[in-house]
Design a protein around this nucleic acid. Structure first.
Lengths: 346, 346
DNA sequence: CTGAAAGCGCTTACAG
DNA sequence: CTGAAAGCGCTTACAG
């Protein structure tokens, strides 16, 4: 039955157990150099007293932090909340706490968030979400992270970031190829892409995958409009409007992520365009709700929760001489939003 | 151009500026008792050096942490990710960092997460998500939080928690009433409720609201089955199966949150039950995707992002003599998943 | 207005 | 195996 009032300190535990704080510290951290009997006694006393180590003191004294920082573009976006869920689950299992920051898809904000996390002395910094096509945007961040890693910190990222850290690489190119192959196999030839900002590597990679598949089928890139908009539901809505207006004969819209696909579906529904009868729609990611849309969304599963667990587990491993890269599986999930190309469109 | 290598410390700034660390500290924190000229110079030097305060040292020395802790049931659930988004946005604007923990809807886990956050010396602890109907489950947590608050910490919660902290109260009872009144006004009389665990106050409150509305219409509580299941999509699926099996004449299913409603819709679709033609479905919360389901989901908007901002802003205010309570708006959002009661069901 | 010094609660060489 | 002591980087009375 822990007492309330000021927190129990290590010295309280040590006194009660009749040992020095050095011995108490060693016992609690499971270091050897303490007789098992003494260590067990100290642990018992600590538990009786409800002792919890003061993280700040421990960190300042040179111990480890047990905090990991996670930078996401926006935690309200399902893609990121599923990644965060994976990170938090694994972190909890390992006794770590997760600090979450928003970068808002802005490299300047991202840099300042990195600095904040480093100042907080986190064990590890995790960055989720697309990198930027322009590598100069990240050189400052890279500098900070390298210094951090040289001094024993760990960092790992999801995606292609031009950062010299461990990285989990979602199968963005392959996902683009898979979704394009799928609609091609259904006979679609008038395809349009609802894309996020061209500044993002994720967008670039997914488009590259789509183009590769199109080329194999003899379709010139110029014949497939790529409409850039925000990488959000509203962006998807807007992209769909422009696609239907500028390319009215389109029979398949590939949205570069599920959230945009939701916006695309919304626009089509509003305009009375039947999916998949008139136009097929597909996304990428397979966020949880994709299966529950109507029509349910054909997409490519990227296992965000796993990505989250993976990126943390990489960061927790001892560093290697050079940055590690890890891929993660993907699979086409065919559902109701795609169907055979119509013979003809009005 | 900040140098890399070991971090710049206050003493580095002080030396470079030619002052003591006491003066440097005061200058940087904007305390008075320092001539403006000196203070400005120190700040300039600090900025040139890229100085960032060491949070652990500051906290240990008695300064403030600039970290707030947020406990959610599960960050992957849209209800919580939208709340978290509100918290993170406001926190960022105020220069605070957010630590997120999972309670997994388990009071024991919740308590241990509270202890972790307190040990991390957070400025404020925020708890989002339902409390437990059994108040004894929270007495330990209450004790910890009271001790924390006595020693200057701040705490605030979303929902009815039997905790003596500031609280934002989502309009759970009113939401239950509103959604029930809505289906009643459409002529439904054979209504069933797909509910989460009976141990949660949110479930209890929403059911209470529904019952109040039913009573006003002369419907006995016994005539409205409340099927308890997990407060998740899968729970909604399961509840719908049981409802259709045990109460086949049901014409309206009220899910106690949108995530469950998604599961209900999924089951109905699988079974070929037309919504809203055969059965109307409604939820509560209005998560972002609710508008994009098909049929789009009738629900009661509870403004989760606002709840998140609100709970943090309460925690940031100076404490009052007694815990503050704040309500938050709600509004019925009628969409496509509810319609007139059918004349007769097979 | 400014500085020397104690102290926050830990960890970790360094002695024994 | 165990303990006394220094030190992590700050803040804040306490003197001047």
């Amino acid at each position: 039955m822990p007492r309330s009032g000021p927190a129990t300190r290590l010295i309280d535990v040590a006194e009660r157990a009749g040992v020095s704080i050095a011995t108490a510290s060693r016992s609690l951290r499971g270091q050897d150099g303490v007789s098992e009997a003494v260590a067990a006694h100290v642990r018992q006393v600590a538990s009786d007293l409800g002792y919890v180590v003061n993280v700040h003191a421990r960190t300042l004294a040179g111990g480890s932090t047990s905090i990991v920082g996670l930078i996401v573009h926006e935690i309200g976006d399902p893609y990121f909340s599923e990644i965060a869920s994976g990170v938090v689950h694994l972190a909890t299992a390992r006794g770590l706490t997760v600090q979450i920051c928003h970068s808002g898809r802005d490299p300047v904000t991202e840099l300042s968030q990195i600095r904040t996390l480093l100042a907080h002395g986190t064990e590890a910094v995790l960055i989720a979400g697309s990198g930027y096509v322009d590598p100069t945007l990240q050189s400052e961040a890279d500098k900070e992270l390298r210094a951090f890693q040289r001094s024993g910190g760990r960092a790992a990222v999801i995606g292609r970031h031009f950062l010299r850290t461990d990285a989990v690489l979602p199968a963005n190119v392959a996902a683009g190829e898979a979704i394009a192959e799928h609609v091609l196999s259904l006979g679609h030839r008038r395809i349009a892409v609802a894309a996020g900002s061209a500044a993002l590597t994720t967008v670039e990679d997914r488009v590259a995958g789509i183009r590769a598949a199109l080329e194999r089928h003899g379709i010139a890139p110029g014949d497939v409009p790529v409409v850039h908009s925000a990488f959000t539901r509203d962006g998807g809505q807007e992209a769909a409007e422009r696609i239907l207006h500028e390319h009215p004969r389109t029979t398949a819209i590939l949205a570069l992520n599920d959230v945009m696909a939701i916006g695309v579906l919304s626009t089509l529904r509003t305009l009375g365009v039947s999916v998949p009868h008139d136009v097929s729609v597909a996304g990428i990611d397979d966020i949880a709700v994709a299966a529950d849309l109507a029509p349910s969304l054909t997409t490519v599963r990227l296992h965000m929760q796993q990505l989250g667990e993976l990126v943390l587990s990489m960061a927790l491993k001892p560093p290697s001489a050079r940055p590690r890269r890890r891929g993660c599986g993907h699979e086409l999930v065919v559902r109701g939003s795609t169907g055979p190309a119509p013979r003809r469109r009005a």
